[in-house]
Nucleic acid binder design. Structure first.
Length: 291
DNA sequence: AGCCAGGTCTGCG
DNA sequence: CGCAGACATGGC
Protein backbone atom coordinates (compact mmCIF):
# COMPACT_ATOMS: atom_id res chain seq x y z
CA UNK A 1 0.00 0.00 0.00
CA UNK A 2 2.64 2.49 1.05
CA UNK A 3 5.76 1.98 -1.02
CA UNK A 4 7.80 4.13 1.33
CA UNK A 5 7.95 6.17 4.43
CA UNK A 6 10.90 8.01 5.79
CA UNK A 7 12.90 11.18 5.87
CA UNK A 8 14.99 12.75 3.19
CA UNK A 9 17.85 15.03 4.15
CA UNK A 10 17.98 18.06 1.87
CA UNK A 11 21.34 19.43 0.83
CA UNK A 12 21.83 23.00 1.93
CA UNK A 13 22.99 23.98 -1.55
CA UNK A 14 19.80 22.57 -3.09
CA UNK A 15 16.93 24.47 -1.51
CA UNK A 16 13.35 23.30 -1.45
CA UNK A 17 10.30 25.30 -0.45
CA UNK A 18 7.79 22.49 -0.27
CA UNK A 19 4.67 24.46 0.58
CA UNK A 20 5.36 27.12 -2.00
CA UNK A 21 6.11 24.53 -4.65
CA UNK A 22 2.88 22.62 -4.02
CA UNK A 23 0.62 25.66 -3.69
CA UNK A 24 1.89 28.12 -6.29
CA UNK A 25 -0.49 27.16 -9.08
CA UNK A 26 1.41 24.47 -11.00
CA UNK A 27 -0.40 21.67 -9.11
CA UNK A 28 -4.02 21.77 -8.04
CA UNK A 29 -4.53 18.69 -5.94
CA UNK A 30 -2.44 19.25 -2.81
CA UNK A 31 -4.02 20.10 0.51
CA UNK A 32 -2.44 21.29 3.70
CA UNK A 33 -3.84 19.66 6.80
CA UNK A 34 -2.46 18.87 10.19
CA UNK A 35 0.97 20.12 9.26
CA UNK A 36 1.23 17.73 6.31
CA UNK A 37 0.72 18.21 2.60
CA UNK A 38 -1.51 15.49 1.26
CA UNK A 39 -2.15 14.56 -2.34
CA UNK A 40 -2.61 11.68 -4.74
CA UNK A 41 0.20 11.06 -7.19
CA UNK A 42 0.21 8.21 -9.66
CA UNK A 43 -2.74 6.62 -7.89
CA UNK A 44 -1.05 6.62 -4.47
CA UNK A 45 -1.68 8.79 -1.45
CA UNK A 46 1.35 10.89 -0.57
CA UNK A 47 1.87 12.82 2.62
CA UNK A 48 4.76 15.28 2.85
CA UNK A 49 6.09 17.58 5.54
CA UNK A 50 9.17 19.78 5.47
CA UNK A 51 11.00 20.68 8.64
CA UNK A 52 14.02 22.75 7.68
CA UNK A 53 16.40 20.47 5.84
CA UNK A 54 14.32 17.39 6.57
CA UNK A 55 11.62 16.20 4.23
CA UNK A 56 9.33 13.64 5.82
CA UNK A 57 7.32 11.50 3.48
CA UNK A 58 4.74 8.75 3.58
CA UNK A 59 3.69 7.13 0.34
CA UNK A 60 6.34 7.42 -2.35
CA UNK A 61 9.76 5.87 -2.48
CA UNK A 62 12.65 8.25 -1.96
CA UNK A 63 13.57 8.02 -5.62
CA UNK A 64 10.06 8.70 -6.86
CA UNK A 65 9.75 11.64 -4.51
CA UNK A 66 13.06 13.13 -5.63
CA UNK A 67 12.00 12.88 -9.21
CA UNK A 68 8.55 14.40 -8.60
CA UNK A 69 10.04 17.34 -6.74
CA UNK A 70 12.87 17.67 -9.29
CA UNK A 71 15.44 17.49 -6.50
CA UNK A 72 17.77 16.00 -9.10
CA UNK A 73 18.01 19.42 -10.74
CA UNK A 74 20.61 21.98 -9.72
CA UNK A 75 18.18 24.76 -8.88
CA UNK A 76 20.71 27.49 -7.97
CA UNK A 77 22.57 26.85 -11.22
CA UNK A 78 19.33 27.13 -13.19
CA UNK A 79 18.23 30.28 -11.41
CA UNK A 80 21.59 31.94 -11.90
CA UNK A 81 20.94 31.81 -15.65
CA UNK A 82 17.75 33.88 -15.35
CA UNK A 83 18.88 36.27 -12.60
CA UNK A 84 19.41 39.19 -14.94
CA UNK A 85 17.84 42.28 -13.33
CA UNK A 86 16.39 43.62 -10.05
CA UNK A 87 12.82 42.55 -10.80
CA UNK A 88 13.48 38.87 -11.40
CA UNK A 89 16.11 38.97 -8.67
CA UNK A 90 13.47 40.09 -6.21
CA UNK A 91 11.10 37.32 -7.33
CA UNK A 92 13.84 34.73 -6.96
CA UNK A 93 14.43 35.91 -3.40
CA UNK A 94 10.74 36.03 -2.54
CA UNK A 95 10.08 32.48 -3.74
CA UNK A 96 13.19 30.71 -2.52
CA UNK A 97 13.06 26.98 -3.03
CA UNK A 98 10.29 27.01 -5.59
CA UNK A 99 10.76 24.07 -7.93
CA UNK A 100 8.95 22.99 -11.05
CA UNK A 101 7.43 19.60 -10.42
CA UNK A 102 7.47 16.60 -12.73
CA UNK A 103 3.78 15.88 -12.99
CA UNK A 104 1.72 13.56 -15.14
CA UNK A 105 1.23 14.99 -18.65
CA UNK A 106 -2.37 13.81 -18.97
CA UNK A 107 -3.39 15.29 -15.63
CA UNK A 108 -1.72 18.57 -16.51
CA UNK A 109 -3.27 18.65 -19.96
CA UNK A 110 -6.77 18.38 -18.52
CA UNK A 111 -5.93 20.73 -15.66
CA UNK A 112 -4.86 23.53 -17.96
CA UNK A 113 -7.84 23.08 -20.23
CA UNK A 114 -9.83 23.74 -17.07
CA UNK A 115 -7.58 26.65 -16.11
CA UNK A 116 -8.69 28.93 -18.94
CA UNK A 117 -10.34 32.21 -17.98
CA UNK A 118 -11.03 31.36 -14.36
CA UNK A 119 -9.30 31.62 -11.00
CA UNK A 120 -7.16 29.16 -9.11
CA UNK A 121 -9.70 28.33 -6.37
CA UNK A 122 -12.23 27.31 -8.99
CA UNK A 123 -9.67 25.38 -11.02
CA UNK A 124 -9.00 23.34 -7.91
CA UNK A 125 -12.71 22.69 -7.47
CA UNK A 126 -13.22 21.63 -11.06
CA UNK A 127 -10.33 19.19 -10.89
CA UNK A 128 -11.41 17.86 -7.51
CA UNK A 129 -14.84 17.27 -8.99
CA UNK A 130 -13.40 15.41 -11.99
CA UNK A 131 -11.42 13.19 -9.64
CA UNK A 132 -14.32 12.57 -7.30
CA UNK A 133 -16.72 11.71 -10.11
CA UNK A 134 -14.43 9.73 -12.38
CA UNK A 135 -11.32 8.63 -10.46
CA UNK A 136 -10.97 5.74 -8.06
CA UNK A 137 -11.12 6.25 -4.36
CA UNK A 138 -7.97 6.32 -2.25
CA UNK A 139 -8.31 6.38 1.53
CA UNK A 140 -6.88 9.59 2.97
CA UNK A 141 -6.28 10.95 6.44
CA UNK A 142 -9.37 13.09 6.50
CA UNK A 143 -11.86 11.18 4.40
CA UNK A 144 -11.54 9.63 0.96
CA UNK A 145 -9.34 11.05 -1.78
CA UNK A 146 -9.41 10.23 -5.45
CA UNK A 147 -6.89 9.49 -8.11
CA UNK A 148 -6.94 11.60 -11.25
CA UNK A 149 -9.16 9.93 -13.86
CA UNK A 150 -7.58 8.26 -16.88
CA UNK A 151 -8.66 9.22 -20.38
CA UNK A 152 -10.77 6.06 -20.41
CA UNK A 153 -12.40 6.92 -17.09
CA UNK A 154 -13.51 10.24 -18.54
CA UNK A 155 -14.37 8.99 -22.01
CA UNK A 156 -16.60 6.23 -20.63
CA UNK A 157 -18.64 8.56 -18.49
CA UNK A 158 -19.00 11.73 -20.50
CA UNK A 159 -22.68 11.84 -19.67
CA UNK A 160 -21.73 12.64 -16.07
CA UNK A 161 -19.31 15.39 -17.04
CA UNK A 162 -21.99 18.02 -16.52
CA UNK A 163 -21.93 17.44 -12.78
CA UNK A 164 -18.38 18.77 -12.68
CA UNK A 165 -19.47 22.32 -13.63
CA UNK A 166 -16.70 22.89 -16.14
CA UNK A 167 -18.75 25.35 -18.16
CA UNK A 168 -17.64 25.65 -21.74
CA UNK A 169 -14.49 23.68 -20.95
CA UNK A 170 -16.58 20.52 -20.78
CA UNK A 171 -16.50 19.98 -24.52
CA UNK A 172 -12.71 20.38 -24.61
CA UNK A 173 -12.18 17.89 -21.80
CA UNK A 174 -14.53 15.38 -23.42
CA UNK A 175 -12.76 15.66 -26.76
CA UNK A 176 -9.34 15.35 -25.19
CA UNK A 177 -10.43 12.26 -23.27
CA UNK A 178 -11.85 10.64 -26.40
CA UNK A 179 -8.75 11.45 -28.41
CA UNK A 180 -6.26 10.16 -25.85
CA UNK A 181 -8.37 7.13 -24.97
CA UNK A 182 -8.23 6.25 -28.66
CA UNK A 183 -4.50 6.93 -28.84
CA UNK A 184 -3.07 6.12 -25.41
CA UNK A 185 0.49 6.57 -26.58
CA UNK A 186 -0.04 10.20 -27.52
CA UNK A 187 0.97 11.91 -24.27
CA UNK A 188 4.22 9.94 -24.16
CA UNK A 189 4.86 10.56 -27.84
CA UNK A 190 4.62 14.29 -27.31
CA UNK A 191 7.46 14.13 -24.83
CA UNK A 192 9.72 12.80 -27.57
CA UNK A 193 9.00 15.67 -29.95
CA UNK A 194 11.06 18.80 -30.47
CA UNK A 195 9.64 21.74 -28.57
CA UNK A 196 7.74 23.45 -31.37
CA UNK A 197 6.28 20.19 -32.65
CA UNK A 198 5.17 19.21 -29.17
CA UNK A 199 3.60 22.64 -28.83
CA UNK A 200 1.83 22.37 -32.18
CA UNK A 201 0.45 18.98 -31.19
CA UNK A 202 -0.97 20.43 -27.99
CA UNK A 203 -2.42 23.36 -29.93
CA UNK A 204 -4.37 20.88 -32.05
CA UNK A 205 -6.53 20.08 -29.02
CA UNK A 206 -9.76 22.01 -28.70
CA UNK A 207 -9.49 24.32 -25.71
CA UNK A 208 -5.70 24.46 -25.68
CA UNK A 209 -4.27 27.76 -26.92
CA UNK A 210 -0.86 29.41 -26.63
CA UNK A 211 -0.97 29.86 -22.90
CA UNK A 212 -2.34 26.45 -21.97
CA UNK A 213 0.09 24.75 -24.35
CA UNK A 214 3.02 26.47 -22.66
CA UNK A 215 1.75 25.54 -19.19
CA UNK A 216 1.38 21.92 -20.25
CA UNK A 217 4.88 21.91 -21.70
CA UNK A 218 6.35 23.51 -18.59
CA UNK A 219 4.47 21.63 -15.87
CA UNK A 220 3.53 18.38 -17.62
CA UNK A 221 6.56 17.84 -19.82
CA UNK A 222 9.15 19.73 -17.80
CA UNK A 223 10.23 21.81 -20.79
CA UNK A 224 11.83 24.78 -19.06
CA UNK A 225 12.00 26.97 -22.16
CA UNK A 226 8.19 27.30 -22.20
CA UNK A 227 7.09 30.79 -21.14
CA UNK A 228 3.32 30.89 -20.50
CA UNK A 229 1.79 34.35 -20.81
CA UNK A 230 -1.33 34.79 -18.71
CA UNK A 231 -3.02 37.94 -17.47
CA UNK A 232 -0.58 38.25 -14.53
CA UNK A 233 2.60 37.67 -16.48
CA UNK A 234 1.37 40.08 -19.13
CA UNK A 235 0.91 42.77 -16.48
CA UNK A 236 4.30 42.12 -14.96
CA UNK A 237 6.07 42.12 -18.31
CA UNK A 238 4.40 45.35 -19.40
CA UNK A 239 5.16 46.94 -16.05
CA UNK A 240 8.84 46.05 -16.05
CA UNK A 241 10.14 44.69 -19.33
CA UNK A 242 8.50 45.88 -22.53
CA UNK A 243 5.86 48.26 -23.76
CA UNK A 244 3.10 47.23 -26.15
CA UNK A 245 3.96 47.96 -29.77
CA UNK A 246 2.58 51.33 -30.80
CA UNK A 247 -0.98 50.90 -31.97
CA UNK A 248 -1.36 47.37 -30.65
CA UNK A 249 -4.41 46.36 -28.78
CA UNK A 250 -3.60 44.72 -25.51
CA UNK A 251 -4.38 42.03 -24.65
CA UNK A 252 -4.13 40.27 -27.96
CA UNK A 253 -2.73 37.00 -29.12
CA UNK A 254 -0.15 38.84 -31.16
CA UNK A 255 1.04 40.89 -28.19
CA UNK A 256 1.15 37.77 -26.01
CA UNK A 257 3.28 36.06 -28.62
CA UNK A 258 5.61 39.03 -28.52
CA UNK A 259 5.86 38.78 -24.73
CA UNK A 260 6.55 35.04 -24.93
CA UNK A 261 9.30 35.50 -27.50
CA UNK A 262 10.82 38.31 -25.50
CA UNK A 263 10.76 36.17 -22.35
CA UNK A 264 12.34 33.25 -24.13
CA UNK A 265 15.10 35.42 -25.61
CA UNK A 266 15.72 37.50 -22.52
CA UNK A 267 15.71 34.77 -19.85
CA UNK A 268 17.11 32.01 -22.03
CA UNK A 269 16.79 28.24 -21.91
CA UNK A 270 15.19 28.32 -18.45
CA UNK A 271 12.70 31.09 -19.18
CA UNK A 272 9.95 28.95 -17.71
CA UNK A 273 11.55 29.14 -14.27
CA UNK A 274 11.68 32.92 -14.57
CA UNK A 275 8.04 32.93 -15.56
CA UNK A 276 7.02 30.81 -12.61
CA UNK A 277 8.94 32.93 -10.11
CA UNK A 278 7.42 36.10 -11.56
CA UNK A 279 3.97 34.53 -11.39
CA UNK A 280 4.43 33.43 -7.80
CA UNK A 281 5.68 36.87 -6.79
CA UNK A 282 2.92 38.59 -8.77
CA UNK A 283 1.34 40.32 -5.79
CA UNK A 284 4.63 42.00 -4.94
CA UNK A 285 5.86 43.00 -8.38
CA UNK A 286 2.72 43.37 -10.47
CA UNK A 287 1.21 46.64 -11.59
CA UNK A 288 4.39 48.61 -11.57
CA UNK A 289 5.20 48.14 -7.90
CA UNK A 290 8.93 47.82 -8.13
CA UNK A 291 10.69 46.30 -5.16
C1' DA B 1 -23.80 43.90 -7.94
C1' DG B 2 -20.40 43.79 -10.94
C1' DC B 3 -15.84 42.92 -12.36
C1' DC B 4 -12.56 39.61 -13.14
C1' DA B 5 -10.34 35.15 -13.65
C1' DG B 6 -3.12 31.22 -14.94
C1' DG B 7 -8.06 32.13 -22.38
C1' DT B 8 -9.83 30.17 -26.52
C1' DC B 9 -12.83 29.84 -30.38
C1' DT B 10 -15.56 31.59 -33.99
C1' DG B 11 -17.13 34.71 -37.33
C1' DC B 12 -16.41 38.55 -39.56
C1' DG B 13 -13.55 42.39 -42.37
C1' DC C 1 -4.20 37.43 -41.18
C1' DG C 2 -6.09 40.24 -37.16
C1' DC C 3 -9.65 41.88 -34.42
C1' DA C 4 -14.35 41.76 -31.48
C1' DG C 5 -17.58 39.21 -29.01
C1' DA C 6 -19.20 35.22 -26.97
C1' DC C 7 -18.64 31.95 -23.73
C1' DA C 8 -20.23 29.08 -18.39
C1' DT C 9 -19.27 29.75 -13.95
C1' DG C 10 -18.22 31.40 -9.60
C1' DG C 11 -14.60 34.00 -6.49
C1' DC C 12 -14.10 38.11 -4.26
Amino acid sequence: MHPGMGTLRLRDDQPLGLGLTLSCGQAFRWDHQGGWWEGVVGGDLWRLRQDGDRLHYDGPTAGTLRRYLALDEDLPAILSTVDRDPVIHHALGACRGLRILRQDPWEILVSFICATNTNIPRIRKMIASLAQNFGGEVPGTDGPRYRFPSPEDLAHGVDLLGTCRLGYRERSVAEAAARVAGDPGLPARISGLPFEEARDTLLSFHGIGQKAADCILLFGYHRPEAFPVDVWVRRIMYAHYLAPLAGSKVPSEKEDRRIREFGRDYFGAYAGYAQEYLFCAREMIGRGRVP
